[in-house]
Simulated assay, not measured.
Amino acid sequence: MEYKTEEKAIQIISRVFVDDFEDVLGKRFSIPIVLLPDEESKNADQWISRYINQKLNIEIQGKEVQLNFIGKRYEDDRIYLYIEAENIPDFNSISVENLILTDLFEEQKNLVHFKKNKELKSMVLTKSKSKHTFTY
């Protein structure tokens, strides 16, 4: 995750294994979903967007930030998810909650890197400790 001061935007890239993501989407929405470039399920982007908005949350000054799923890219056995939040004024602290894959994998660990003004901070989030506030 990175805050781009000039664009007043938070840009996010989330990297997950394709097979795990297919499993979690299928179980979460009770439909089979295939995430392969040549065989991708119809409406896959809708399901991905819906899941991201349920499992990834950002708050600035107590207000939830609207996240927009803008696309994806497949690489080997991984899928890169591109997410953006626009019109974000400068801030001193930001809370990030990341529950991606935790509803399928109890021991899932999500490593979150947040960069603002060239300062990088990192935190490991789990199902039991899913939220962290980064202060700059």
Rank of each mutant, 00 (worst) to 15 (best):
R78A: 12
R78K: 15
I79W: 02
I79V: 14
I79P: 01
Y80F: 15
L81Y: 01
L81F: 12
L81S: 11
L81Q: 01
I83C: 07
E84H: 03
E84L: 09
A85C: 12
A85N: 07
A85F: 09
E86Q: 12
N87W: 06
N87D: 14
I88V: 09
P89M: 11
P89V: 10
D90I: 13
D90L: 12
F91L: 05
F91M: 02
F91I: 02
S93L: 11
S93D: 09
I94E: 06
I94W: 02
S95L: 15
S95R: 08
V96L: 11
V96N: 05
V96Q: 03
N98S: 08
I100S: 03
L101M: 11
T102N: 08
D103A: 06
D103Q: 10
D103K: 03
D103H: 07
L104H: 03
F105P: 00
E106T: 14
E106A: 11
E106P: 00
E106S: 12
E106I: 14
E107L: 14
E107C: 01
E107A: 13
Q108Y: 05
Q108K: 04
K109Y: 06
K109T: 14
K109G: 05
N110L: 07
N110F: 02
L111W: 08
V112Y: 02
V112H: 04
V112L: 10
H113Y: 14
H113A: 12
